[in-house]
Design a protein around this nucleic acid. Structure first.
Lengths: 108, 108
DNA sequence: TTATATATCTTCTTAAAACTAGAAACTAAT
DNA sequence: ATTAGTTTCTAGTTTTAAGAAGATATATAA
């Protein structure tokens, strides 16, 4: 078994999942920036998305032009079953370890 | 603030947390191998532990000789407050994303 | 005191992940 | 047409993770 899902890759996948029908590049980027304090570049996101696609974790399709000011047609992303399974596995493992440990959620 | 916690680094930290007083190299390795299907080398673990130490996420101390068969004195690891905070932050973020998404845990 | 078990530590290499910068593609208003 | 706003996409670099192989340290047993 090779090729694990990296920390940023997982964040991108989860964000795509939460955005549902609205999961395209810039929206994913902004969502990540809003939820975390990290400033992430669109290029960094794009290369990660390419990798996720090559690994079979996402599919994509082009949207139709809108009435917005401008811009290329949006490319929307969807998780594959394989991605959902992988995310589920990672969550199960971490939840179990979290339960076994004496760690506590700290509010911050 | 730079340098995120990688996927394997997080697994190592969580494993150390669950092992508590028994968190030394070989025990951590075996625990990871038992809970996952990945075959990880002690060398890979060691370099990760060095990195976590440099990042200020773990401390360590040498154990006392025991009546066991033999061997070098064990080096035990502990999480720092900074590590606990980082793990908590990551869990909070993922839990939130998981809730917002329509993902479900699949048994496997 | 030699053999062996247990475990850490070192070095080196490779692969994967994360990131940067900026070009290109496209849309629509002016 | 020109311009400006949005977005995707490409090429390349840097950083981090992982693994292999084995040297080194410590303890116990015979």
């Amino acid at each position: 078994m090779k090729g694990h899902i990296g920390e940023f890759e997982e964040l991108v996948l989860l964000t795509i999942a939460t955005l549902g029908e609205q999961a395209y590049g810039v929206a994913v980027l902004e969502d990540i920036q809003n939820r975390t304090n990290r400033k992430t570049s669109i290029g960094a996101l794009h290369s990660t998305i390419t990798r996720l696609d090559e690994k079979g974790f996402i599919t994509s399709y082009l949207g139709e032009p809108t009435n917005e000011r401008g811009g290329r047609r949006k490319r929307f992303f969807q998780l594959t079953a394989s991605a959902k399974q992988a995310l589920s596995d990672m969550k199960s493992l971490r939840d179990e370890l979290w339960t076994l440990s004496d760690l506590k959620l700290t509010s911050r």
